[in-house]
Amino acid sequence: GDGEATEEAPRPPYKQRVLVLSSRGISQRQRHLMNDLTGLLPHAKKDAKLDSKHQLPLVNELCDLSSCNNALFFEARRKYNDLYLWAAKAPNGPSIRFHVLNTHTMDELKMTGNCLKGSRPIVVFDKQFDESPHFKVIKEVLMNIFAVPKTARRAKPFVDHVLNISIADGKIWFRNYQILDIPPADTEAPTSSSTGAKGKAAKQDGPKMSLNEIGPRFVLQPVKIFEGSFNGATLYENKEFVPSSSVAGAYKNARASKYKGRKG
């Protein structure tokens, strides 16, 4: 009865729902990436394009209307064909703005893997995510969005893919692999001679398994972390991030000064 209930406070169930939407002016490739990701998230709901470009906190209201506690917002910038991805905890934050680079969608024929629609992935994070406060926050937000909770109604009961989230060069690399319960064929597994010994040891001792890439692939460069959801104080700013506008500006200036030098 009551006594038992108070003895051990039950852990609140882990529940996540994700609202997926984009700004207007998103290109076809960018929309493909969005659809690929939505296909991987049985606990996601897709919403119509957001009309307003300057009132992003509106996303919080849309999350509330669809009872979502997370948002993935694809912000397209037409001028330099840039894509920014917002990952947010609605309504109280934090939220992270990423610059999306090196996108490959699932449609590419190199991506030979497949998995059940809506099966729960194993999500694996790089060790570096535990080594600095901003990556810790990013890890928790990405886990809330990309790990499919046990409670997701449309989730399938088997495990057949891994989402690999690694850090290299200060950027976050996203890969999605199918799990095959057969040992790797020599032609398919990316093994090179230098690592051959290690690979062989794993083959003999470990369970027989191999991976096949399903896609999509992309790289996220963190730009800023905000305390709120699409608002609030900036907690982190990536000093290595160079916006496309300054790249273009620097190029223009270099050309201008070359011209001036010629004239002078």
Binding site: V159, V162, A168, Y177, A189, P207
Partner: peptide, 15 residues
């Protein structure tokens, strides 16, 4: 290859 190895470790550990 490093990404593949990390993902393979995760799949095997999860199993």
């Amino acid at each position: 290859l490093e990404f593949y190895k990390q993902a393979l470790w995760a799949a095997q550990h999860a199993e």
